[in-house]
Amino acid sequence: MSLLMDRAGDRLSLSRSSPQAASLRRIWGMMYRHLALYRRSWPRLLELAYWPVLQMCIWGFTATYMATRMGTSFALAGGVLLGGVLLWEVALRSQMGVAVSFLEELWSRNLGHVFVSPLRPWELVAALIGMSMIRMLTGVLPAILLAWLLYAFNLFALGPIVVLFFANLMIMGWWVALGVVSLILRHGAGAEALAWSVLFGLTPFSAVFYPVAVLPWFLQPVALALPASHVFEGMRAAMLTGVIRWDHLAWAIGLNVAWTIAAAAVFAGQFKAARRRGALLSIGE
């Protein structure tokens, strides 16, 4: 029997919460850690919205200019372009939200404390995903608002299907980020540049601004293996023809499930390998 008592005589050392409640509290603890960081760091907050808003301005004015030169047919294409920019930011911000939040732990050299606490690896991932959602909404919502104010482009005019587009692109961002975190666990801070660049590298194959059919035949299977290309094909169909392509959505969901399982397996393997090498104490160099 533990001798650990507080001043009122209650045992405090052992948890009184149910396992589920304790787990949720640990996830919240890690999210609180990042929220407290943002509260104290306005440059970090600014950075969240800076790039999506900048992208929206650049592509929005480009589309406006092209529409004035080429007429109404390009106005429709401009809308597709803006939809692509906004939705691709959802994937980018979701991926960076997970990867950069993990890097914050690495930069503060705090991983040693985190991983000797009762926090399970999947709880850390859940907290990173929670932060990713907050970061993505903080970054993308101002850009969506700006698109509506400046260019009268309303992404939500597509209807509830937008939520499914959002969800699939967020999930894609998360599994890509899980892969990036795995590489950081394997190679240390040397791999941190991937947190910003890896999804940009997938942009040409994700059919963000053009259909998969435009790609050379040997790249088309690569594109079709990515959930994003199905989401963007679906978005273009909805915007240009008003038809909801459920087949593309089904492919996106299925591919996301498969890639998430693969990324989770890679993460679990790299986490165990890092524990075997002692990298969780020394990572960052």
Binding site: D6, D10, R16, R25, V114, P118, L119
Partner: peptide, 11 residues
């Protein structure tokens, strides 16, 4: 506070 949550410390 962060570590209190991680260790599920009551009060």
């Amino acid at each position: 506070r962060v570590y209190g949550h991680l260790y599920d410390v009551s009060r």
